[in-house]
Amino acid sequence: MTTIRRWLDDRIPIEPGALRALTNEPVPHHLKRWWFALGGTPAYLFVVQIVTGVLLALYYQPHPSTAWESVRYITEDANFGWYLRSVHKWAATLMIAAVVLHQIRVYFTGAYRKPREVNWMVGMSLLLCTLMLGFTGYSLVFEQLSYWGATVSANIADTIPVIGGFLKKILLAGEAYNERTLARFFVLHAAVLPGFLVALIAVHIALVRIQGVTELKFRDEPATGDRKFPFIPDHLYTELIIGLVLMVVLSALATLAPATMGPLADPLTTPEEIKPEWFFYVTFRWLKLMGGTAAVLSMGLIVFLMFAWPFIDAWWRRRTRLREASVWIGVAATLLLIGMTIREAVAPH
């Protein structure tokens, strides 16, 4: 045993003590509250997505003539294929939900404020990356809604002034959906976006480590005493519990509401009812509220405002006395998001 350790130490000169110190960061006490662990949830789900995604890619074929059939093969023929595909689908849904909840929590606790503005923007990038993963993943199934969703999205991109046409052509590999389009979606979904996501997560966590977790204090906590507790084992256990709960929930969802297959994409017939995945309901509703370019530009503006929010907030707090206006803006925005999602969900078309 010691020989092996010495052999390893000679070649990989990392001190176990230093490694432990590096990973075992003291964790603020408020993290004992469960809803403050939401940041770890999407990370855990992302790992699930990588594992199941890599396996699904073993059978998936990104070509219009075979894509749907290969998904059918996974769903109907491969061992446990239906289960893994359902887990992948549900984990995606939960991941987006968890990212959004995490962001809401960060927002309302003001954790984006100085010095954490950069990390907020990294987080925003993570949100956009996750949404794009959701979109590209859905397009890969090549059922009717995948096809028409992708077509509609590309044409939305087309309405962006100046660069729209270019974007659309880049996205679709041509003027319209063609037999080379799916390969792009596949590479985006399975390589480019996950790569970005890994890099962004690394920066995100590094920044958390460098800046430390925002410390919060609750009224019912004892005023004195140790305000921090060690990451290992206490918080690790918390994350393990969350991980297991997620696995059980995913298994339950996958067995009770398994991923199904819609009809094969048909470029000649647009389905009567066309709706994106739930996490795009808001954008979909927004597009219906106003026309083409206006909708796209206003959406771009909203995303820009969200990115720049820490600075806007800081500017606001310096200039006015309404220091907690962000809370009310947040409440309004959240209600609007929920409202538009529900509105779209119940809308027949």
């Binding site: 289960y83 206490d234 256990y237 393990l240 519990i241 297991l244 709960v245 059980v248 298994s251 067995t255």
Partner: peptide, 20 residues
């Protein structure tokens, strides 16, 4: 308590896979 919870959740996860 956490250890016990983790242990039993692992069991539940196993059971869910048995169901699968």
């Amino acid at each position: 308590t956490k250890r016990i919870i983790i242990g039993s959740l692992g069991g539940v996860f196993l059971l869910s896979l048995v169901f699968v």
